[in-house]
Nucleic acid binder design. Structure first.
Lengths: 339, 339
DNA sequence: AACGAAGATTACAACGTTGAAGAGCATCTC
DNA sequence: GAGATGCTCTTCAACGTTGTAATCTTCGTT
């Protein structure tokens, strides 16, 4: 049915292996031969069968990106960056959604689909540090993203959670804000992005000599807008006063802003808000949302690089590496300095 | 290295083909045999090699979804729905971004990656109706999404652009709004979502006996928030008056709302706004954005169904079908009826 | 007890590609 | 001018699976 190397070889009058050599840019090839083969390829519209190549060579040229959920803008933009980085290296990306569910995250790692994939970019929400050993037995090259697992058996590419949140908090305190809410804590979490960011928040307070007030720690159930809105409702209902919000994600910050505005709170006059993630949307909200750019593009690029090295050299050939991307505070209206 | 059917067959004391039969649920199998093979599979942690299967059977279990851009919430949510629908059928999804660029859209169709894929869900922005014939020669089963190509050589699953925009326009007119802007037109476009939606807008005007005013047609360059904001700035600068906006996407509506609010226009008091797409975000903006739910989940489900049928029966075995999903107007604050 | 049909399993080849190894030929070295 | 070297191309086998068709088993029927 479809055109194979055989057909190309026949038309070009060479062996099938020479066709293969042309396609793979083998170094010893007469330009003349190369041209003839290429002409035959073009004439027949030949395209290599990637299943056959995958079977023979053990490489498919596909990596999978496991993320919680594409509806979350952070992950959609991460996926976008990963696909661009992969594309630049000739890799295709299969995206798998885990919903941040621990069971599902684990199943995706051992499901039949992994045999189709050269490597995995693994961004988990459900797994915990204690689960790191579960990754030991995975033979597929893997690079970890996100903040749930540090010191795993393989590379980890992530952001400076504590440092950046500390910087954001210091930034609001430096404006003269005195009661700054940590918005998006997860009860009892130490590691994980919420835990790390909370730690950064506390460091900033300590450094500024501002006492830590439990009442200003607002728990948010998840990373959705609705959850941000609900948490802010609860916070307002509690009667606590505050003049700044360091939100642990842009999305929950937007949910919270919505509720504050409805309650007649002016941003930034009454309350300054800074988010986290620098999703596209923050440029166009009212007011525009100050945020932390966690270096997503850099994360994607480095993660794909690392993964490719691991694919080339063997999953365990390289000792685990850690990479922390640079962050930047992006100042917008929601934390504008008052005149 | 990896466990193969051979190893499983040895351990279970059966032929390799029996293992294959167990995996593929062949009907004539002694329960006892089935169990023994399954035990061996579990004991060895065997996972089928999908490249080999793909090579032998011609099916890879992977479909590709070609979309303009995951940063656009509409496409991210569409991708999410497609992946859920595919997952329910045991299919994996490779996402390819085209940036809505015509060249790239065409290249993705013939690139080497397509040989890895059983079928293509093809959502184009750059191609035009005139390009439909370019699809004739594509042998890969394909289902078209979006509004650029109708009457192509294969199935087309889409939304009711005209009807829904007409309904949205009528809805605003029914509230007593008299100068309703069509926001998001593309110059000279007849087909394509912008063209179709504009047609629906005009139908609604005609039906209500409201004269068509060229000044109320606002062109928006693309589908990004920034472009919506810029177009609204231009519209306001033109000095034209209006009391309603039918935006052809939620994202540009949000960009426009931002600019209107900055200009002191109250929504919905001064101007009622309704968007298009029902992206998640519209539930949490201030004010929440009325919109049209175009039936995205239904589109994804039907598209995957159609594609699977085509994969099973052959790309050309089924005459082209057209499917239009149901739409709903979602009333939120931005078009609330004034007290 | 012999036969046929249906149930259960297997042998074999093939899918399209690439790695390993080697053959043919021209050029260089002394 | 014999041997070594380097370039160019080819032969062959193998990757792990499944479709085809054949074989072996079992069981019911006569």
């Amino acid at each position: 049915m479809a055109v194979t190397m055989h057909d190309v070889a026949n038309l070009a009058g060479v062996s099938i292996k020479t066709v293969s050599n042309v396609i793979n840019n083998y170094q010893y090839l007469k330009p003349e031969t190369k041209r003839r083969v290429q002409d035959a390829i073009d004439a027949l519209g030949y395209r290599p069968n990637l299943s056959a190549r995958g079977l023979r060579s053990g490489r498919t040229g596909v990596i999978s990106l496991i993320i919680p959920d594409l509806r979350n803008a952070y992950f959609a933009e991460l996926a976008d960056e990963v696909m661009r980085a992969a594309d630049a290296k000739g890799l295709s990306v299969i995206i798998e959604q885990s919903s941040g569910d621990r069971e599902r995250e684990l199943n995706l790692l051992t499901g039949p689909r992994t045999s189709m994939v050269d490597g995995i970019l693994y961004s988990v929400l459900g797994l915990e540090e204690d689960d790191a050993h579960l990754l030991d037995r995975i033979e597929t090259p893997m690079v970890l993203l996100g903040e749930r697992i540090f010191h795993g058996p393989t590379d980890h590419v992530t952001m400076r959670n504590s440092e950046s949140t500390k910087a954001a908090t210091s930034y609001l305190l430096g404006q003269g804000r005195t009661r700054v809410v940590a918005f998006g804590a997860h009860r009892g979490e130490v590691i994980g992005s919420a835990g790390l960011r909370l730690a950064g928040y506390r460091e900033a307070l300590a450094e500024a000599g501002v006492p830590y007030d439990e009442a200003l720690i607002s728990e948010v159930g998840g990373w959705y807008r609705l959850e941000g809105a609900q948490a802010m409702q609860k916070l307002l209902a509690s009667g606590v006063t505050f003049d700044g919000v360091v939100a642990f994600s842009d999305v929950i910050a937007l949910g919270a802003m919505r509720v504050m505005q409805e309650a007649g709170i002016r941003i930034p006059e009454d309350v300054a808000v800074i988010g986290f993630d620098d999703i596209d949307e923050t440029r166009y909200t009212l007011p525009t949302l100050s945020t932390i750019d966690p270096g997503r593009a850099e994360i994607a690029r480095v993660a794909v690089d690392y993964l490719q090295e691991r694919i080339a050299q063997g999953a365990r050939a390289i000792p685990p590496r850690e990479y922390f991307a640079d962050f930047h505070i992006v100042e917008r209206e929601s934390s504008a300095v008052l005149a």
